[in-house]
Amino acid sequence: MKVDQSLPLEYSTEQNKNNILGFWVFLGAEIMLFGTLFAAYFVLADRTGSGPTGVEIFQITPVLIETFILLTSSFTIGLGINAMRKGNLKAMITFYVITLLLGLSFLGVEIYEFVHYAHIGAAITVSAFTSTLLTTLGTHGAHVTFGLVWGILIVYQLIKRGLTPETANKSFIFSLYWHFLDVVWIFIFSFVYLKGMI
């Protein structure tokens, strides 16, 4: 494989450039995926049947904690990429590990939230509203879970193989994914929770 030294490590081979462009296209597909889920949510949000409405079930505290954690993790992974550009492997791994820990705590709060919903009679089978709410949140949560497993594999490879064009490429793509999940969460926060609480 030809390595072009003039470019950042993650862009340094043809395959790396392909991977990054491919991932951007994939994110385009992901936008459609979440866009469709949001569309379903907007259509079904008021169709609560005999179940509870959004105002009745949403709690502000866990949602604010989740938002704070996820935004912070997006920042720490940015620091990780910054460290990678500077060639500081140790700092990079540290920031990646912090990101993953934040992701894990986000997931913890989200699981608490889901259990709470089930407890107060807003399980996924109750109404069109709860189905679409929990499917949208669940899809995001599943993405975070997938990201955690993926992130662990990447940190493992960074420790094992150091910074090579391949590992740099993978780490960079992972950071794109993580930022994307953050953006999706901002939409969920604004259009599901805030809109639902008013």
Binding site: T36, L37, L44, G49, V126, S127, S131, T135
Partner: peptide
């Protein structure tokens, strides 16, 4: 991706009794 979501919702309705496309409970 639109098909992916629609199929998932249909699958959930059939396997996990969600209420996306049902005739009751707001579907």
């Amino acid at each position: 991706p639109v098909l992916t979501v629609a199929l998932t919702m249909g699958t959930f309705d059939r396997l996990f009794a969600t209420k996306f496309f049902t005739t009751t409970d707001g579907g």
